[in-house]
């Protein structure tokens, strides 16, 4: 069984508040926030690694990103992935979800046979959830998003539970398929020293546009239907009244105001 996991390098969510839009240039000030594996992609990788341990699946990690994203592919190898592919090329830059999915789908075809593709349900920085299902569309395979549980993994048709309003959806899906994974599915394993050492011999394949043999007008910013037309630093401003005094006095004032507004 061949499992492909798509991972994204994202700025560390713990330090995301450091990233700001420069009001003058309208560009992002990244402030050296380190890149980490998108948290939900770790759940996707964990699901793949469990399949590796349970039924000898081979796990390939594919990531599209700038050269520094190589570190997160390395980390995936240290966590147990067998093969790592980094898609890095200027031609891929500026891609929206659509162009990203198109490029990843092209790489997946190039990577060989697959039975299952796993993605995190969403990325912590872009906050779209589109890349997974759109890869599936480009590959012509079924997708189930927001999978929280594998109910049956026997045979060619799996049963999975996916998040739904006030409950869940029980879905039957025929492999090969793409699933996007929520944090409820598993608890990702920790990086270990011996895992890091075992990954010493693993090399990361670096693929560019030429290797993928995809038309450059379908990639990166050129291949993206959407563009960011503007960034603004506007907030929903309100005129604040700051309460003054000691902590006790502030609490008294607030109780008064809450009572006035009919909350108490």
């Amino acid at each position: 069984m061949n499992v492909i996991v798509c991972v994204k390098a994202v700025p560390d969510p713990k330090e995301i508040c450091k990233i700001r839009i420069d009001p003058a240039t309208k560009t992002l000030l990244r402030c050296d926030v380190p890149l980490v594996i998108n948290p939900l992609d770790k759940n996707a990788l964990e699901a793949a690694l469990l399949l590796k341990e349970g039924r000898g699946a081979s796990v390939t990690v594919i990531s599209m990103g700038p050269p520094p994203a190589e570190t997160i592919v390395k980390e995936c190898m240290a966590l147990g992935a067998d093969r790592g592919i980094l898609l890095s090329d200027r031609a891929f830059g500026g891609a929206d979800a659509f162009a990203t999915a198109y490029t990843l789908a092209g790489a997946i075809v190039k990577a060989g046979e697959y039975d299952l593709i796993l993605c995190g349900m969403a990325s912590s920085d872009g906050a779209t959830e589109w890349v997974g299902p759109q890869i599936a569309t480009f590959l012509g395979i079924p997708a189930v998003t927001m999978v929280r549980k594998f109910e049956s993994q026997e045979g060619a048709a799996w049963r999975v539970l996916a998040d739904w309003q006030n409950g869940y959806r029980r879905v039957e899906v025929r492999l090969p398929a793409l699933l996007t994974i929520t944090r409820d599915l598993n608890r990702p394993r920790a990086l270990s020293f011996s895992g890091i050492l075992k990954s010493r011999k693993k090399t990361i394949e670096q693929w560019g546009r030429e290797f993928l043999d995809l038309p450059s007008e379908a990639l990166g910013a050129k291949g993206s239907p959407t563009i960011v037309s503007e960034m603004s630093t506007v907030r929903n401003r309100r005129d604040v009244k700051m309460l003054r005094g000691t902590i006790e006095e502030k609490a008294d004032q607030l109780v008064g105001l809450l009572a006035e507004s009919g909350v108490l």
């Binding site: 979800a97 779209t128 589109w130 997974g132």
Partner: peptide
Amino acid sequence: STFMGRELAPLVAARLRTGLAAH
């Protein structure tokens, strides 16, 4: 941005070869 919309919208957008803004 319901559970249905979050799955169906990207499937439709990819098939129609068009862009999709999230939430």
